[in-house]
Computed example of a mutant assay.
Amino acid sequence: MNVLRSISKSWAKRSDALFCAISTSLPSLRGVSVSRQSLLLINTATVSGVVGLARGDEVLAQASLQLATASNTVVAAIDHVLVKAGCTLDDVAGIVLVKGPGTFTGSRVGASIAKAIAYASPCSLLSVTTLEAVAWSGFLTSTTQVTDGPVWALLDARRHEFYVQEFTVRDGAIVSQADAVCLGPGAFDTVRDVGGLAACAFSPAAVPENQRGRERENVAWSFDVYPSCVGILAASVGARSEDPFTLEPLYLRSTEELFDHPKVAL
């Protein structure tokens, strides 16, 4: 996988070129064809990312990614989990990509790599949103037993804003109750108005001071919950089938809002 590593480092910020370069390199790197039954899981949309390989409901291998400083290590991590699981790309039946929202560069790098592998293998390409994966990850690891009722996923959108989506537990599964939105610090009051379990993909330090330490909380707050392999795998039950030529990362803000016109907190 040295060819892929050098390509990823050179083109990490040019996603279209990265897609083309990796996809042309992959066929020569595949091993002997076997019966495909594994899923490659990729999350590079959050500052704490992960890649993994799963078969059925079992995660065979995984590798953490600290994308704030190492977005160009994604391909090497994929190589690592394949070797650790004793697999090749020919064992991969499909890819489950966490497509955003999240970091701009991280989301594009992960999408480009997933698209390239899906095209070159070829294998199926599925996507889940970051908030779906966060909700499932928080639900599966929560010490608070949730059998029904609200489950919230929150993600730091920077500039004192947060991506928020409400889910509910139905027959043991996480089901969306509303579309994801981008809110200001009032997002925490929105969650408190309803209550439930809140899985937050950020540390407690990201919570505005005037929103911390409320008495008689009706919310079970869980912090530093990032998409895990088991969470991504669980969310993949409702994953969307994607075309590797047309898939784009999910942004809840336009590129103009991201770079040119900072929003005032709602």
Results as ranks from 00 to 15, higher is better:
3 V>D: 14
14 R>F: 04
17 A>L: 12
27 P>S: 06
27 P>H: 05
28 S>K: 10
29 L>C: 00
38 S>N: 10
39 L>Y: 05
43 N>R: 01
44 T>A: 09
44 T>Y: 06
44 T>C: 07
48 S>E: 06
48 S>D: 06
52 G>V: 01
54 A>I: 15
61 A>N: 06
64 S>N: 10
67 L>Y: 10
68 A>N: 06
71 S>A: 15
73 T>Y: 01
74 V>R: 06
75 V>S: 01
80 H>Y: 08
84 K>L: 08
85 A>G: 07
88 T>D: 08
91 D>A: 04
92 V>C: 02
95 I>E: 00
97 L>C: 10
97 L>S: 08
97 L>F: 07
98 V>L: 11
103 T>V: 13
105 T>Q: 07
118 A>C: 13
120 A>C: 10
121 S>P: 02
125 L>F: 04
127 S>Q: 04
130 T>Y: 14
133 A>T: 01
134 V>I: 02
135 A>S: 04
137 S>Q: 08
140 L>R: 15
144 T>C: 15
145 Q>K: 15
145 Q>L: 09
145 Q>E: 12
147 T>I: 12
148 D>G: 08
149 G>D: 03
150 P>R: 13
153 A>Q: 10
156 D>P: 03
164 V>E: 13
167 F>C: 05
169 V>G: 09
169 V>S: 09
170 R>N: 09
176 S>E: 07
182 C>N: 02
184 G>C: 14
185 P>W: 08
193 D>R: 15
194 V>M: 08
198 A>W: 05
202 F>W: 05
209 E>L: 09
210 N>E: 03
211 Q>E: 14
211 Q>V: 02
212 R>L: 05
213 G>H: 15
216 R>P: 05
216 R>V: 07
216 R>A: 12
220 A>I: 09
222 S>I: 10
222 S>R: 12
226 Y>A: 06
227 P>N: 02
228 S>V: 01
231 G>S: 10
233 L>K: 02
233 L>E: 04
238 G>K: 12
240 R>I: 12
243 D>V: 00
245 F>E: 05
246 T>P: 02
251 Y>M: 13
254 S>H: 12
255 T>Q: 15
257 E>V: 08
260 D>V: 06
262 P>W: 02
263 K>T: 15
264 V>T: 14
